[in-house]
Each structure stands twice: as C-alpha cells, then as structure tokens.
C-alpha cells in the first residue's frame, strides 16, 4: 500500500476547509467515495476529486501535495495516523488534534495546533501568529502534544498555552507566551517585545537574551537545576538543534513573572549573544 496522496489541481477561489482529509475520515472509503467527499468553501461545495488528483490507497498515511494557504484546517481533529503536507498550509493546521503526526514541508498559517490535545506537528518552515494558541473566545491554547517549528514563529506563540511543548528553532515574534497558563515553550532564536506578558504559569526557555524583559519579571538567579536539565534532555528527540542546545548544558538565568498576573511563570534565558 502506498500513501494516500492528494495533489492540489488548482488554487480554489476562496479558502476551503479540508479537515475532512484526515486519516480517520478516509479510512475504509473507496477511491470513488473519497472523490465525492464534499469540502466547504465560501458559498461553494467542492468535491475532493475536483480540487485534488488522488493517488495511493493507505489512509493511515495521507499526503497533501502542492498545498496552498487557502487550504484551512488541514489535519484538524486528527485522532491518529500520519499526514504530510507539501507546500504552504493555511490557518488552523492541526486544530484540536488528539493524536497522530502532521509533518509540513513548507510554511503554515496562523493558529497552528490551536487547542490541540495531543500528537505532534512538525513544520519545516515558518509558522504564522498564535502558534499553539486557541481559537478566539476560548480560554486555553494547546493542552498537550508537541509543535516544532524549524523556522520562525509569528507573534503570540504559545498564547494561553495550557500544557505540552512548543519548540521554535528560529525566532518568535512579539508577546511570545502571552497569557501562558502552563506547559513549556522554547525559542532558540530571538523573541520580539514583551515576552511573557500576562503569563500566569509555565516555562519559556530562550536561547538568546531578549533586548529587554518586562519590568514585572524579577531575576531569580542562575540555575542548572536537575529538573531543568531533565527538561532539556527531553528535548533532544526533537532534532539536532535542540540536542546541541541541551548538550551545551547552559546555566540558565531565571526570571519569575508576570507579577502583574499571579507571577508563577518563569522565563529561563541561556547566556549568549542578545
């Protein structure tokens, strides 16, 4: 059996919700049935076969090839299986997923992994704003699983994050880990302004010193605690850059805050170039 592959024929005129192309919903369906599945755009219902040419047959391994930013909610609600995206994915990739793996060879839009509960998302390129956050109106962001962004993430990465791992190899935008509730976010590159704003709990690890920290974070000394070392060690499975970061055994500068919001969060900063 070969991976079930959907190759985008043409850019649709408006954004299309393609959350239907996930393993659990495709399993056991014939090619003909899959061809006829509806995908919702703006006042138009596309048939899968109209938007995509289809190859392969293994619904546990789905590939969306030639993806476009108008493809929304790829892999949303995934409950197992593998999904590979080649190209640029739209907003809400992996929203509310519970398990399984999504690999993106390219960039993703905003709200990647919004409200996800488990599983893993690995993005080779950049992610838009609100990576690992939650939909407008919800009180919690991602609550489990792992998101790895090999490139840069936009503003508000880890906003309202509740549990799980958000790993960014490149830079993150402004207000990183805003309103964070728990969990761990790591940014090996630079962060923008006001990291940790309204952070209540949780851990933000920065590979480089930010230009400025909010005045409502207090310095708590330098740490090489066992707990932190174990945490860093656990990151080594997420690729070489996290391996080398963990194995450099950095002594981390610990800042506690946001004291304007309960103040039980921590920002751990590795020494090095700002």
């Amino acid at each position: 059996m070969s991976a079930l592959k959907f190759v985008l024929r043409h850019t649709p005129p408006s954004a299309v919700d393609v959350s239907g192309l996930r393993p659990a919903l495709l399993a056991g369906k014939s090619r003909k049935e899959i061809t006829k599945l509806p995908l919702t755009g703006w006042n138009e219902i596309h048939r899968v076969g109209d938007l995509f040419s289809i190859r392969g047959d293994d619904a546990q391994r789905v590939v969306v090839d030639g993806a476009d930013e108008r493809l929304l909610r790829i892999g949303a609600g995934m409950e197992g299986g593998e999904l590979t995206v080649v190209g640029t994915a739209g907003d809400y990739l992996g929203e509310s997923m519970r398990s399984g793996t999504i690999v993106v060879r390219g960039d993703v839009g905003t709200f990647v992994g919004a409200g996800m509960r488990g599983g893993r998302i690995d993005v080779s390129g950049n992610a838009g704003a609100f990576a690992g956050s939650g939909r407008a109106g919800t009180l919690q962001g991602m609550a489990g699983g792992a998101i790895v962004v090999r490139g840069n993430a936009g503003d508000r990465a880890g906003d309202r994050m509740r549990r799980g791992l958000l790993l960014i190899e490149g830079n993150a935008g402004d207000y990183c880990a805003s309103r964070m509730l728990a969990g761990t976010a790591v940014v090996l590159g630079r962060v923008g302004i006001d990291a940790g704003y309204l952070m209540r709990r949780g851990t933000l690890i920065l590979g480089r010193s930010p230009a400025e920290l909010l005045p409502t974070f207090n310095h708590n000394g330098w740490h090489d605690l066992l707990a932190i070392r174990l945490l860093l060690e656990s990151l080594t499975v997420y690729g070489k850059r996290f391996q080398s970061f963990a194995r450099s055994r950095p002594s981390l500068s610990r800042w506690l805050g946001d004291l304007g919001c309960d103040g039980k969060g921590e920002i751990l900063i590795a020494p090095g170039r700002p």
Partner: peptide, 22 residues
C-alpha cells in the same frame, strides 16, 4: 501602557516589583 498596567496590578497586590525598572 502595557507595562504600566501590569506594574500597577503588581503594586496594588503588593508584589515585590521595582517600579523604577519601568
């Protein structure tokens, strides 16, 4: 303003902040 608001919150709650850092 973002930092002023959280600093005021911290002061009102009596948290150990240094307003001079603002």
């Amino acid at each position: 303003l973002p930092a002023v608001c959280t600093m005021l919150q911290a002061l009102v709650e009596g948290r150990p902040v240094q307003p001079a850092r603002l």
